[in-house]
Design a protein around this nucleic acid. Structure first.
Lengths: 149, 149
DNA sequence: TCAGTTATTGCAAGGAGTTGCAATAACGCG
DNA sequence: CGCGTTATTGCAACTCCTTGCAATAACTGA
């Protein structure tokens, strides 16, 4: 087995990509990336910090946040905000999808690419605004809660 | 002149509305409402706290935030989140309007009721989700910045 | 008007992020 | 391999907001 368990998929190229930009590959960044590689696509920032701390107790929050900024600038993750304003990261942005949150029952679920696209079209029509649908969680009421009033 | 300079428009009825619900009319709440009555419709939470403090240096932030919660439950204001996640309040929600923020040029502007409605329709179609468009600031790129790439 | 009830307040502590700065440690080059 | 350059780190302080709790003070009813 390799001396440093290597990372899966696109994560294993990050060291090179960083260095290619004059940036550095550090143990702290490796920790963050190892944690990201294990997620299913969504992580709340604070939760990610916690998982890094579990892996390495010396983890410093500000370092994690700064690493996340760098990874976002590389296009590997994308940050957004949940209904309560807290930060959330979408790992490896695949299809553009959004999030819907019902203020009545508290549920949060995904807005599929097709409907997200329809919404983006509705916004574009008018002044040409190109929405980044993944950035926010839309708040409202789900069908069940809306009709229950 | 009246002993207690009375508040304009709908604000002057709040004391009664509060008491009608078993809630109380306090000097601290009066301060918050005086400040709200002077806004143009938008205030960032922290900024509002600051203005209350200017009016009464004894102002305590947590009291202001709690008062805002109460006022929101009365339907007088509505909270939302800006592109950076910070809290913003819409005073006296009139027409349903949203906010758009361009991540390139940093501008933020309003999404008029018509287009907001079009977007809400696009979301409703599908699973019946009723979006509260005023709650979030949609992030993306304005026409100018989008075409500049 | 006074007293009892209990909604609110003030305070302190805590969570989530951000930022400035000096010390540290990756990198790239000789 | 060792050095100098400078990107990063660790730390401390700070912003914005939330929460628990005991003390305070509005309201209500007599």
């Amino acid at each position: 087995m390799s001396p440093h368990h290597s990372l899966p998929a696109p994560w294993n190229t990050i060291a090179h990509r960083l260095r290619a930009q004059g940036l550095r590959w550090t143990p702290q960044r490796r920790t963050v990336i190892e944690v990201l590689a294990e997620t299913d696509g969504h992580v709340m920032a604070a939760e990610l910090v916690e998982r890094c701390r579990a892996r390495d107790p010396r983890t410093i929050p500000s370092t994690v946040y700064r690493t996340l900024d760098v990874l976002e600038s590389l296009g590997l993750i994308r940050h957004g905000h949940r209904a309560d304003g807290r930060e959330e990261f979408h790992v490896l942005p695949t299809g553009e999808h959004g999030h819907l949150h019902c203020r009545s029952c508290g549920a949060t679920w995904e807005l599929g690419p097709e409907r997200a696209a329809a919404m983006a079209r509705a916004l574009r029509r008018g002044d040409g605004f190109e929405v980044d649908i993944g950035h926010v969680t839309l708040v409202g009421r789900c069908a069940a809660c809306a009709s229950a009033r």
